[in-house]
Design a protein around this nucleic acid. Structure first.
Lengths: 249, 249
DNA sequence: CGTACGGTTGATACATATCAATATGCGTGG
DNA sequence: CCACGCATATTGATATGTATCAACCGTACG
């Protein structure tokens, strides 16, 4: 399913950020050029920048969890497979998101690049060693885990109790929110927003616990009732976010 | 849905554990009598024992997250409601489990006693203050959050991609495992195990993203094919765990 | 002994999956 | 620039698993 194209380039973060590695704020400055941000800033000073090409596997299920990753740009999917090939995508990671952070020594999911993407890769051993006597860092690790937990808890409700329409609506709103907050753009409550979907219909289906056909049908239905528009299959214009929000319950 | 029966009794933990509060091991000793255990031991030294009667609300959704809780005995459900009454149970907490730990100041779920239950209740402010300069405690908090994350990630796969049979099978095996590990009993791989269900069919349904009827039908079907037996509705005998495991994929 | 509550069972409806065909977009090579 | 081929997406017809609606049963309890 995922071609095993490997990392294209790895650069020491310090090459990009020659000095002032002391704390996060130098990174934040660099971020303006590229795309990084967030509480994860602190972590980003400890790693190495790596690029993965589309569909490259970043790590596999049950692999040794030697590194954790922070997204700089692009999108990755974190997922799990069932014996017969059924797949559940647990999360799409966008710029600023952290993934691969485990307490146990093995990854319990696999991670793949949805689009070409750039990440900071940090050695787990280094990270944990520092966290032992850096309370800020320890807190950052906890914060990352807790945030992730919150996201998944919401997703649990989506998968357990929501209809296809509600799932898709929730997904679109959530993605719009995450993408725009990263772009730093503030969008008025009324006006339409356009969302660029980095992932395929199959990815969306596996994230929402649906089939590709149901996702497609649901989108065209939402288009029929003029809640969204689909200028192309990867671009979604949210025309009436209030209605979507209603479907969100 | 939940009668607002309140806490029945609160005792200072120190009354039960007069001395040696220095670390967790005194608690562990006490635990042999009652039921507590686990990495959460460390936390348990900081709180007050409280009892909740069946169906009592321990905290509500969006309530101020002033406390965190450690189960000593009984079962609680942690859940979220949708506007129209649909409910998703995120977790059943058994003895030794921690719940109500949030980074943000508000609970994002509600918690209710499934059966009469005893908990240690810890003031969040105290906990966090101590965690600031107690690395062990900070690590314990992270550990609790990460463990919970792991549980939910598995549950996500259940809700997103498994059939009713698979969900029920997974649930039974998981519960059997959790209950027996707490009882300290080691059960041979072949022999049947009996599981006492602390919760109603409705609770199971809301945990598994199914209806009560489907849960019931699935159980009777598993009984028909002699994988389980149902001596009574709250007691399930796992007669063939290999088959269940197979459904678990 | 009835009433209430939780659980089971049955008949039917419906949302989503499945299977199959067609369409659209996109990179490659002529 | 166009033609081809492959990926991905849409649309249609049908199947199926689970929900819904409704009746019934059993056990606990006043």
């Amino acid at each position: 399913m995922s071609s095993s194209a490997a990392a294209l380039a790895t650069t020491h973060f310090s090459q990009i950020m020659p000095k002032a590695l002391s704390k996060a704020h130098a990174v934040r400055q660099w971020a303006d050029d590229a795309e990084i941000l967030r509480p994860a800033d602190l972590l980003a000073t400890l790693g190495v920048v790596t690029t993965f090409s589309r569909n490259a596997e970043i790590y596999g299920e049950d692999a040794q969890a030697d590194h954790i990753y922070i997204m700089l740009s692009g999108t990755t999917r974190v997922c799990k497979l069932l014996g017969d090939g059924r797949r559940q995508i647990e999360n799409f990671c966008l710029s600023g998101d952290v993934f691969g952070l485990e307490m146990l020594p093995r990854h319990r999911f696999s991670a793949e690049a949805v689009s070409e993407c750039k990440v900071v890769r940090i050695k787990r051993s280094i990270l944990f060693a520092r966290a032992a006597d850096d309370a800020d860092l320890a807190h950052a690790l906890w914060s990352v885990t807790a945030t992730e937990l919150g996201r998944i808890q919401n997703h649990l409700l989506v998968l357990g109790r929501k209809t296809a329409q509600e799932r898709v609506a929730t997904f679109l709103l959530d993605l719009a929110e995450r993408l725009s907050s990263r772009a730093g753009r503030m969008v008025g409550r009324g006006e339409p927003v356009e969302v660029q979907l980095p992932m395929s219909r199959q990815d969306i289906a596996d994230y929402l616990g649906l089939t590709i056909e149901t996702v497609s049908r649901t989108l065209t239905h939402l288009e029929d009732v003029e809640v969204i528009a689909l200028p192309s299959s990867r671009r979604v214009l949210l025309r009436n976010r209030d209605v979507l929000q209603g479907l969100n319950s």
